[in-house]
Design a protein around this nucleic acid. Structure first.
Lengths: 155, 155
DNA sequence: TATAATTAAGTCAAATATAGTCAAAGTCAA
DNA sequence: TTGACTTTGACTATATTTGACTTAATTATA
């Protein structure tokens, strides 16, 4: 348990806790210096220890003034239902199936009426407007992205 | 957040606010002196932080008595704002411009935080995932569909 | 009044500063 | 001794900073 990945993981989680907040912002190269490892090691730590499933969101910016932001999130109540739906719509999904899903989420009050309308409007075949079968793949990714967002965003 | 671009951006926005008006006029060389940077840095700040998508218009004059004017765009009605944005994003729109637009709508409380996250998630280049320039056309239709929905759906 | 000088702002590309990706090499436990 | 996990570094992508050169407006001068 003394590999550098675990050490950096523990350090970052400790900083998160001690600051008593759900966000920290780091400079990749500074952390790499601090722990004497290559910068890409930090990406490895983040990709394996601070994943969405584990309850984290990562934001970052390159260039001057760049940073990596680690945000702790709480999954919403209905996240099991959302996971099941996400599984169901891989790797393609039709417009009709998507509309049915959105309506079900509305009935279950997972989403608002306005959110439902937004979702239905954006997954329309005439809006995506690329040929089948690509279209249903694009829609699958779109739905997955939105459902994943719902998983960790409260009303 | 210690890069000069962000600092100057914050300063200019603060002056805009404190003056309680939607226009400020600056002398490029004076601001450059004040923040000890080259004059063209000011152009960089303006070109990346005070874009039309973010809701600003820039006017300027060279020569003696020259200036740069930053004007914040205001709309009377929400539907006017949405119409203006829809016009702006035809027939293509980049991811960055779209994110800027969504952030502006959130600021103006036209949409909720959750709606903003839904919109940002679905217009991501990796989600649409078709080659340019088609991708920016698809995104334009997607944004237009969602904005049109917002126009006709109350909160 | 032309023309030259001066005073601004604009453009663009190179240099610099970050972070991301990916695959090869290394490690370690079962 | 194999397979999963970790470490490393070369290469890529992106954002910012800088300065040389260009363009435009005003002012001074012949």
């Amino acid at each position: 348990m003394s590999n550098i990945t675990d050490i950096i993981e523990r350090y970052l989680k400790q900083v998160l806790q001690s600051k008593n907040q759900n966000m920290i912002e780091i400079k990749r190269s500074e952390i790499a210096d601090q722990f004497q490892c290559v910068p890409s090691q930090i990406n490895y730590v983040i990709n394996t220890r601070f994943t969405e499933e584990k309850g984290y969101i990562i934001e970052s910016k390159r260039g001057g003034g760049g940073y990596i932001r680690i945000i702790r999130i709480e999954h919403q109540e209905q996240s099991d239902l959302l996971d099941a739906i996400i599984k169901l719509i891989q790797p393609t999904v039709t417009q009709q199936a998507s509309v049915d899903i959105v309506e079900r989420l509305l009935e279950k009050e997972v989403i608002t009426e306005r959110e439902a309308k937004l979702m239905v409007s954006v997954i329309d075949r005439n809006i995506i407007s690329v040929p089948l079968p690509i279209r249903d793949e694009v829609r699958s990714r779109m739905m997955t992205a939105m459902l994943t967002t719902l998983k960790y965003t409260s009303k």
